[in-house]
Amino acid sequence: MGKMKDTFVTPLLKGNPITVLVLGICSSLAVTVELKGALVMALSVTIVTGLSSLVCSLLRNTIPNRVRIIIQLVVVSLMVILVDQFLKAFESTYAIDKSLSVYIGLIITNCIVMGRIEAFALGNKPFPSLVDGLASGMGYGAILLIVAFFRELLGSGTLFGYQVIPEALYNAGYVNNGLVILPPFALILLGCIIWVHRSLDKELQEK
């Protein structure tokens, strides 16, 4: 059981896809302006990584080695399109799917998905692969939410669309920071998160 716990915890902390493996940076800059979008993106990626890893692990002994990347890609795109179709079908998620525009479709190109299949799912049993995939997605999602929290709070003064910075503060001269809305700030924030993460975990520090 200890090994299973390891499989789950590692992608969240020591092997975090964004802060340690530095994968999936592009989308983490793009979809973190608002918490709502970031949350949907995080859930979508978690589902895609989890299910793709599971399916690829189930198929791992049958996949012809020469075309394994293509087969993985087909499985991943199947999952991504399914997620996209379901988001489009429900009234509550339709608007979010529209605001995330191309980024849901671009989960296909997210290195985390293919990376975890290549590195883990093809060499492990289905259940651990599912756990690893889900945990990788959550590790990615956690960083996304942290970044989105600061960007929405400082950039729009809201959280999940609700105004949290009181009107009085604006009257006193406080203004929302325009830079925070722009992608470069997400990169700065990510840098800070990586910095904090590495200073807390001595094992990650390079000599």
């Binding site: 087909v74 199947l78 489009k88 079908a89």
Partner: peptide, 28 residues
């Protein structure tokens, strides 16, 4: 044979889902 089966299977799943969810998506 393997790739053909996988691709056809995936296409069938997508076609099925698209048909089932189509009316809801159209309403949205």
């Amino acid at each position: 044979i393997y790739t053909t089966i996988v691709v056809v299977l995936v296409a069938a799943i997508l076609a099925f889902v698209s048909q089932k969810l189509g009316p809801m998506q159209a309403a949205n």
